[in-house]
Simulated scan of single mutants.
Amino acid sequence: MSGSGGSSSSSKEVANSIWEEIESAHTVTDHQLSVLHFLFGKNLQKAAKMVDQRCVKKIAGEPSGRFVFQVVGESRRKEEYLCFPEHYCGCYSFFYDVVNRGEQLCCKHQLAARLASSLGSCEVVNVPDDQLALLLSNL
Rank of each mutant, 00 (worst) to 15 (best):
L44D: 03
S8C: 06
S7A: 13
K108Y: 06
P85Y: 00
Q45T: 14
S75K: 10
V51L: 05
N100M: 10
L33G: 00
R76F: 01
E123S: 09
L105K: 03
N138F: 10
C106D: 00
F67N: 05
K58G: 01
E13F: 13
V71N: 04
S7Y: 07
Q45R: 07
E123Y: 06
N43T: 14
C106K: 15
A133Q: 11
S8F: 08
K78F: 07
L33Q: 12
S2D: 04
N138K: 08
E80M: 05
D129S: 07
S121F: 11
S137Y: 04
M1F: 09
A15C: 08
K57M: 08
H87Y: 02
I59A: 01
K46S: 13
E62Y: 04
F84C: 11
S24Q: 08
S10A: 11
L132P: 13
P85A: 01
Q45W: 06
N43E: 06
V72M: 03
G41T: 10
S8I: 15
L39M: 11
P85K: 06
S17Q: 07
Y96C: 06
N100K: 09
F38P: 01
H37Q: 13
H87T: 11
L39D: 05
G5N: 09
Y88E: 04
L135I: 14
A25S: 15
H31F: 09
N16T: 15
Q104C: 08
P85S: 04
A133W: 02
N43R: 14
K49T: 12
R101L: 15
C122R: 01
P63N: 01
S75H: 03
V51S: 00
K12N: 02
Q45G: 00
Q45M: 11
E79S: 13
V68Q: 05
V51G: 03
E20R: 12
F67G: 00
L105Q: 13
V68K: 09
Q32I: 08
S64T: 14
C106Y: 07
L139A: 04
L115A: 14
C106A: 12
S121I: 13
S64D: 07
S118G: 09
H31C: 06
D129I: 03
V125S: 05
N126M: 10
L119D: 01
L135R: 12
K49P: 05
G102M: 03
L39G: 10
K46W: 12
S75I: 04
K57D: 03
K49W: 13
R77F: 01
E86D: 14
Y92G: 02
G5Q: 02
Y92C: 08
S4T: 15
Q110C: 05
E62F: 08
